[in-house]
Nucleic acid binder design. Sequence first.
DNA 1: ATAATGACGTCGG
DNA 2: TCCGACGCCATTA
Length: 112
Amino acid sequence: MTDRPDDATDLPRFAAQVLDVVDLVPPGQVVTYGDVAEYLGEGGPRRVGRVMSQHGGAVAWWRVLRADGTPAPGLESRAFAEYRREGTPLRPGGRRVDLSRARWTGDPAGSA
DNA sequence: ATAATGACGTCGG
DNA sequence: TCCGACGCCATTA
């Protein structure tokens, strides 16, 4: 027992929750690092970013980006490929995501 | 114990 | 709009 690896693995509780939230974000929508932290009610953007850098590959990491709408450094190319594939709304110029339209608030209306 | 680093966020120029 | 500085928080040197 010892503990029940809730979902993915024997990851720390916080990390598991972060990955869980990201997994809830539907295609075509995104969330910021700060939003995830706020959604969980603990930690901070920096903390979420660390989790993603270590275990981001286990989820749709491209759906988590910075507050200004720019994806994670180094992965921009792949991220934009996904945005184009999922139809994620981008801002004029196509260099960043239109958060005003693509931001997922955690509202169940979007996931179903 | 102190300093530096990192998939961040906000502010000022 | 782009760039730099500072603040936050946890990990690592």
